[in-house]
């Protein structure tokens, strides 16, 4: 009896030590970083959300009303919940590792503080990638691309194994609340690492209206390059060049 009691106690102690080192210690190390609430997140509404309201005004108005911080919070939360309910996370990771050239493929390497928010409760790092990582997904594709992709993945990316999500659309084939929310969610992922997006956009708009001689040049260049070169120029870090070519129908 005595011996088996010792077994029990020592076993529990070992278990406690292991759990401390693997689970509690990382938590203590990271506790300094404040946890962002949904309200904190909504202070930075990505521009794709406003664009969503412009792209799909009828649907957006029906389900969310006006595009503002409040409706963003609702859409983001719903989108995250669908991401979990449809178990997208078994096919998509949310973590850019500092190895295997992932920073070239996806963008900035993941860092702890970007995960300290309620949208990562439970965390969605995941351990399997059938499709690409999504933590830098914001702005990689347009809202329309996502809508078409969710509706019929293989017509947008031939040969893909991602399922189509018919229930993101209502009977007439328009995006419903689920669809709009999921797009909001994927367009939010990583938007906080891409402030350069806004800067470059400003530069581009200025470049569009310089003096006459220059404007001729840009105009000449535009038709040839705009479609393929623009995404690259807009996001030098995300390595848009290595995105699947099928992505642009």
């Amino acid at each position: 009896m005595k011996f088996s009691r010792i077994v029990l106690i020592v076993g529990i102690l070992f278990f406690a030590f292991g759990t401390f080192w693997q689970a509690v210690a990382p938590w203590l190390s990271l506790k300094k970083i404040p946890v962002k609430s949904l309200e904190d997140i909504a202070k930075d509404v990505p521009r794709e959300f406003y664009m969503l309201a412009e792209d799909y005004p009828v649907e957006f108005n029906k389900y969310f009303g006006k595009a503002d911080e409040k409706s963003f919070m609702v859409a983001l939360k719903t989108g995250r919940d669908i991401y979990i309910a449809d178990i997208c996370w078994q096919c998509h990771s949310q973590c850019v590792r500092p190895v295997s050239r992932e920073e070239i493929r996806f963008g900035r390497i993941s860092y702890p503080s970007e995960y300290n928010n309620v949208m990562q409760l439970p965390q969605l790092l995941s351990t399997r990638r059938v499709g690409p990582d999504l933590i830098r997904e914001s702005g990689v594709h347009s809202n329309d691309w996502h809508a078409a992709h969710f509706k019929d993945t293989r017509s947008v990316v031939p040969g893909t194994v991602m399922p189509s999500y018919a229930w993101f659309f209502d009977k007439d084939g328009h995006l419903n609340k689920k669809g709009l929310s999921v797009i909001t969610y994927v367009q939010w992922l990583g938007s906080w690492t891409k402030p350069e997006k806004y800067v470059l956009q400003a530069v581009n708009t200025e470049a569009a209206k310089p003096e006459s001689s220059e404007s001729v040049k840009t105009e000449e260049v535009k038709p040839a390059v705009s479609e393929s070169a623009k995404p690259e120029a807009a996001k030098p870090e995300t390595g848009a060049a290595v995105k699947p070519e099928g992505g642009k129908p």
Binding site: G18, P26, V35, Y115, N116, N117, V118, P122, Q123, L125
Partner: peptide
């Protein structure tokens, strides 16, 4: 072990600890 582990894995990272620390607990 298993009841303790189950409680840790199914409650802590779901309701209390987000993000990277949650991932450490999930892995455990």
């Amino acid at each position: 072990w298993i009841p303790m582990v189950y409680i840790m894995g199914n409650y802590v990272p779901v309701f209390f600890v987000p993000g990277i620390a949650g991932a450490a607990i999930t892995g455990t």
